[in-house]
Simulated assay, not measured.
Amino acid sequence: MATSELSFLKQRCKNVNNTFEVSCSVDSTLVEKTLLGHADKNEDNEPVVFICGKCKLPLGDSTSWDGSEDGQNQIKLKRVTDNVLINKESHLHEANKRALCLISDLTCRGCHSVLGMVYTSTPKKLDHKRFTFWFNVADIDSYVIGSADQTLSAGGPKEQPVTLDYRGIVEDQITEMKMLVISMAERLEEIEAGLQDGCDKV
């Protein structure tokens, strides 16, 4: 590579979109514990669905989990749903001080939020980063299948127990309604009688 090309790439790297610069303050094991409940997968773990942090569309699940790397606030999945779009345009990304890569953004089909990236071109030593979907933990959320625990009783929503006091209140209300209906019926009879008298006089 010519010196001019190398200096051009270095200059371009300084202007790279910083969306995917990761924080070293989050340990990968902590990420796995947060999203999957345990750092090591086993058969007893319930499946996890990964969703967009903004619009909550499903992006993938733990059956395609490919782990994460130390010092990166990202997770890797081997497969994703159709709700994840891969941008056609690639741009430079500095994976570390001596490794320039080409990446394409991953965006949500629903809200168009940037969720992560895929590596489209890497130096040989970083080839392991390709062919997987990298998601920023800050931009996604997760739901553990089977974690719902709210239920309704057999009788449906909460019902007021029938006590003697409650029964007395209901009976009083029914009596008042009956009296109102009788009063309305008597008033209606008076009106009909008045109309009948008017017709007889005519």
Rank of each mutant, 00 (worst) to 15 (best):
T3Q: 15
S7M: 10
F8N: 14
Q11L: 13
K14F: 07
V16E: 10
T19A: 05
F20I: 00
E21K: 14
V22Q: 11
S23H: 06
S23K: 08
D27N: 10
D27M: 08
S28P: 04
T29G: 13
L30G: 10
L35Q: 02
D40V: 15
K41I: 14
E43Y: 13
N45Y: 02
N45K: 04
F50H: 03
I51S: 06
C52F: 00
K54G: 05
C55G: 00
L57M: 07
L57S: 08
G60P: 01
E69I: 10
G71Q: 01
K76N: 14
L77N: 00
L77E: 00
R79I: 11
D82G: 06
L85F: 11
L85I: 09
E89A: 12
H91Y: 11
H93T: 03
E94P: 06
A95V: 08
N96D: 12
N96S: 07
A99Q: 08
A99Y: 05
L102P: 03
L106G: 03
L106I: 00
C111I: 03
V114H: 02
V118P: 02
Y119R: 01
T120I: 05
T120F: 04
S121D: 15
L126F: 13
F131H: 15
F133H: 07
V137S: 03
A138Q: 12
D139A: 09
D141A: 13
I145W: 04
G146P: 02
G146E: 02
S147D: 06
Q150V: 11
L152Q: 05
P157D: 04
E159D: 08
P161I: 03
V170T: 08
E171F: 09
D172W: 08
D172Q: 15
Q173F: 09
I174T: 07
I174L: 11
K178A: 12
V181Y: 07
L188H: 10
E190F: 10
G194T: 07
L195T: 06
D197M: 11
C199K: 15
K201E: 12
K201F: 08
